[in-house]
Each structure stands twice: as structure tokens, then as C-alpha cells.
């Protein structure tokens, strides 16, 4: 069972980035909208906007490896998850409410640190790919001497 530091990656209002690599060793980075887990962080589903994640999905098809870092923009607490691809699908209508809610929480947090909603509201979050990932490693990623410490 992952500890509290690990579980904070599921908190609403976080900012999420995803890293992948293509078959030639070239990394790619993309912003994600939401992360969900139904099994205590054995696996997670990462929601990526379709419009901006085409290269990433291609990379996943090629190498099946990904890293996800989730950070709270207010206190910079961050967790990195690393693992392998279970599957990719287009997020369904039944997931739209959850993704919208996470996006809304994110814009709330941005507003707290000075980003106006007229700007953050223009970020595209739907339609989204749902990328299911088997978590193999988790790391503390908050900047400081503990960054890189395994969380499980």
C-alpha cells in the first residue's frame, strides 16, 4: 500500500506532465489533465488531451514506457510514477464529468496563484485519451534533498 506522499498524486487541483520515449531514444513531454486509480495505485489512468498527445500515443505504441509527474502548484509537492502501458483508449462520456471536475479544480488552484480564469479556461482538455499504466516505481519528486527517494 502506497503512503500518503504517493496518494497525493490523486488529489484534485494538481498539474500533471507525462514523459515518453520513441524507438530511437528521443523523449517527448506532454501535459495531462487528470489521473485516477481504482486499485490503490497498482495502476492509474492518465487523461491526455487528444489534440496535443499524438506523438505521445505513437511513442507508447512503440516503447510502452511512460513517466508521470504530478505536482501541487501551491506547495510544489510532487510525486513521479513510472511504469508500463496497459492500454490506450478514447475516454468515454462516463469519464467526462470526472475529467471536467479535475480540470475545474486545476483552474481553481491556478486562480489562487494568480492565473486568471479567462486564460486557464482556454486550455483544451477534451476529448481525451485514457492511458492506463501499470505502476512499477514511485518517487518523491518535491524539490529538495529527498527528491528521487523511492516511495515504494
Amino acid at each position: 500500500m502506497a503512503n500518503r506522499s504517493a496518494h497525493r498524486c490523486l488529489d484534485p487541483g494538481t498539474t500533471i506532465i507525462v514523459g515518453t520515449i520513441d524507438g530511437r531514444g528521443t523523449p517527448d513531454v506532454c501535459r495531462a489533465i487528470a489521473v485516477a486509480s481504482q486499485d490503490g495505485l497498482a495502476t492509474v489512468v492518465v487523461y491526455l488531451p487528444v489534440a496535443t498527445s499524438q506523438t505521445m500515443i505513437q511513442n507508447l505504441a512503440d516503447t510502452k514506457r511512460l513517466a508521470v509527474t504530478v505536482m501541487n502548484p501551491v506547495n510544489n509537492c510532487a510525486t513521479q510514477l513510472k511504469g508500463s502501458l496497459v492500454g490506450v483508449r478514447l475516454a468515454g462520456d462516463d469519464e467526462a464529468g470526472f475529467v471536467r471536475g479535475q480540470f475545474s479544480a486545476f483552474t481553481d488552484v491556478l486562480a489562487r496563484i494568480g492565473v486568471p480564469r479567462r486564460l486557464s479556461g482556454s486550455l483544451r482538455y477534451w476529448p481525451a485519451f485514457a492511458v492506463e499504466m501499470q505502476i512499477e516505481q514511485m518517487f518523491e519528486q518535491t524539490p529538495g534533498p529527498q527528491a528521487g527517494t523511492p516511495l515504494r
Binding site: I17, G19, T20, D28, V29, R65, A67, K82
Partner: peptide, 16 residues
């Protein structure tokens, strides 16, 4: 900003 790298084994790493 977001930065993605990878090690020699092709394991990606992504950080702010």
C-alpha cells in the same frame, strides 16, 4: 517548464 529525459535503458523521466 516540463522536461523529459530518458536513461540508457529507455526509461523516461519527467520533471518540472
Amino acid at each position: 517548464s516540463a522536461v523529459a529525459t530518458a536513461d540508457r535503458n529507455g526509461i523516461p523521466n519527467v520533471t518540472y
